[in-house]
């Protein structure tokens, strides 16, 4: 670490926010940069579709694996869903490089608070910290490097899963039931609208979310569907009272193969029942 005495700022009690400390001590490490002229939309890859939904006792977030740059596929196996701590996770859409840095900062922020204060933040508190980080990126967003996260977590007080959507200014909106973010989210949300039921169990909801991602990939060129030849499948993270876990590839693969088998019979997916 340092070869001499620890700097005074480190020894001064005060903020328990890592982002604030970083801003004061080493602002060059923040995931934002000095203003450069022009529109930067296409200089870096973009991550695309994330979906999330609640079920009794928890919440699930899932994301496809594709990143695009202009009309090209930049990454086929990108991770866009990250656990942010034991009881929360964040999915990101938008400028990939900045988004990944933002997530790293957010993860450190939560862990730092937990260690300094000896207690975890409330789910609202976590969502609020993420707001501040997204807002800090606004100047970059104005130049086309937009990052829009989707935050999910388990609220031990209410004993249920919660979902927060964001806008590029850091505005945060708690969502009920399900939501999506990213270029394919329009189609994913349309799919979820017809398939989602609040009383689905964990396995059922995973299947519904994979269906929604399939629908997004079906109509949005920037969203990747399950890649059977390369064995690349969406990332699915489930959070319940017992904590969070990312589903193993084999588990998601089984669901995805099932979805694809169904689509071979009916390419548009399951039919929502008409009420009489």
């Amino acid at each position: 670490m340092t070869e001499s005495r620890i700097p005074a700022a480190y020894m001064t009690p005060g903020t328990s926010s890592f982002a604030d400390f970083l801003t004061a001590q080493s602002p060059d490490l923040l995931p934002r940069h000095n203003a450069v002229p022009g529109n930067l939309t296409d200089i870096a890859p973009h991550g695309t579709t994330i979906v999330a939904a609640t079920f009794p006792g928890g919440v699930i977030i899932a994301g496809d694996r594709r990143a695009t740059q202009g009309n090209l596929i930049a990454e086929r196996d990108m991770r866009k869903v990250f656990p942010s701590d034991e009881y929360s996770a964040v999915g990101i859409a938008g400028s990939a490089g900045i988004a990944v840095e933002l997530v790293k900062l957010f993860q450190t922020e939560l862990e730092h608070y937990e260690k300094i204060e000896g207690t975890t933040l409330s789910i609202e508190g976590k969502a609020s910290r993420l707001s501040a980080l997204v807002r800090g990126n606004l100047p970059m967003a104005m130049q086309g490097l937009v990052v829009v996260p989707l935050f999910v977590g388990f609220d031990p007080d209410a004993a249920k899963g919660k979902i927060y959507g964001y806008d590029p200014t850091g505005g945060r909106y708690e969502q009920t039931g399900y939501t999506g973010v990213g270029s394919g989210s329009l189609f994913a949300k349309g799919s979820l609208k017809k398939l989602y039921r609040p009383d689905l169990d964990e396995a059922g909801l995973v299947a519904v979310l994979i269906q929604a991602l399939y629908d997004a990939a079906d109509d949005d060129s920037a969203t990747g569907g399950p890649d059977l030849s390369r064995r690349l499948f969406p990332l699915v993270h489930v959070i319940t009272a017992d904590g969070g876990r990312t589903l193993p590839d084999a588990e998601v693969a089984a669901v995805a193969e099932n979805v694809i088998a169904g689509r071979l019979q009916r390419p548009d997916g399951p039919i929502a029942e008409l009420e009489a």
Binding site: M1, Y10, M11, F18, L29, K104, K115
Partner: peptide, 18 residues
């Protein structure tokens, strides 16, 4: 020692982040 502890957490998190 609380000051030292906080400094340690900050040093470690800063290094791990950078």
């Amino acid at each position: 020692f609380e000051n030292l502890r906080i400094a340690g957490v900050r040093l470690a998190d800063m290094r791990g982040y950078a």
